[in-house]
């Protein structure tokens, strides 16, 4: 049994995960919690948010995020990859700035117009 705090939303439910019982989750108040509890022990993932270099806009940085969570262990490698990326204005909110980061199948998107 492992106790966790769900990060699915600001409620922060206190979860108990039973590894010996197919990672059954209790203490959650929604489906997200059950999923989070299971994943957190088997393959923890996070959405990465950061900025990339930007040229020609009103700011020199453009905020970006992974469109879906990526493995937690890859966060620092993903930061390294994104430190090499430069976008040129005009950028549209939601536009892909990098496809399939580190072979995860997850795209990195801009999170503002620039």
């Amino acid at each position: 049994m492992t106790e966790l705090t769900c990060i699915g939303c600001p409620l922060g439910c206190r979860l108990t995960v039973d590894e010996e019982n197919d990672y059954a989750v209790t203490g959650n108040s929604c489906k997200k919690g059950a999923e989070y509890g299971k994943n957190e022990l088997k393959n923890p993932t996070r959405v990465l948010t950061t900025t990339v270099n930007a040229e020609g806009g009103i700011h020199g940085r453009c905020p970006v995020r992974t469109e879906a969570p990526i493995p937690k262990a890859m966060l620092f490698d993903a930061m390294k990859v994104l430190s090499e990326v430069t976008v040129k204005a005009p950028v549209k909110c939601g536009e892909t700035v990098l496809e399939d980061i580190l072979g995860t199948g997850v795209n990195v998107i801009a999170t503002r117009d620039l």
């Binding site: 939303c9 600001p10 959405v47 948010t49 900025t51 905020p63 995020r65 909110c93 999170t111 503002r112």
Partner: peptide, 25 residues
């Protein structure tokens, strides 16, 4: 919101986890 580039905004309103700039957008 423009400097709050982390996600977690808008769960109640948009049922999505947006970043701050996306929420403002």
């Amino acid at each position: 919101l423009n400097q709050c580039i982390h996600n977690g905004f808008g769960l109640h309103r948009f049922k999505e986890e947006l970043s701050g700039p996306e929420y403002a957008h």
